[in-house]
């Protein structure tokens, strides 16, 4: 498959994620959209990695492998982030009975 398809797909996913973060107010949905963006990037990384592997397969078996390693890193970081983020959201819900982020501007004051 040509690399363009992957690019367009991940771009679309990324844009959906951005739009979701920008427009939604529910913290959990925003969270999911952030995940969507991360995964869009992951997809792209894997796709490019594969492309490079094909291109260089002959001479260098390890070529492009670092892209896939990055993906694991991102997944680990994302998992950590989700655990912390969800914890915050749970605490927030307990305190305010809402997950609306616009309700959370009190740091300003």
């Amino acid at each position: 498959m040509p690399i363009n398809y992957y690019i367009f797909l991940s771009l679309a996913l990324f844009c959906i994620g951005v739009a979701g973060v920008l427009t939604r107010r529910n913290a959990i949905i925003i969270f999911m959209c952030v995940e969507l963006m991360l995964n869009a990037v992951n997809l792209l990384l894997v796709a490019f990695s594969k492309m490079h592997q094909h291109a260089l397969a002959a001479g260098n078996p390890g070529a492009g492998i670092d892209g896939q390693i990055f993906v694991f890193f991102i997944m680990v970081v994302a998992a950590a982030e989700v655990s912390v983020g969800l914890a915050i959201i749970v605490m927030m819900y307990r305190n305010t009975h809402s997950t609306d982020v616009n309700f959370l501007n009190r740091l300003k004051h």
Partner: peptide, 14 residues
Amino acid sequence: LQSGQVGGYVLLMV
């Protein structure tokens, strides 16, 4: 700019 609105920050980021 520091409105405290998460949406605002994200918009600026984008």
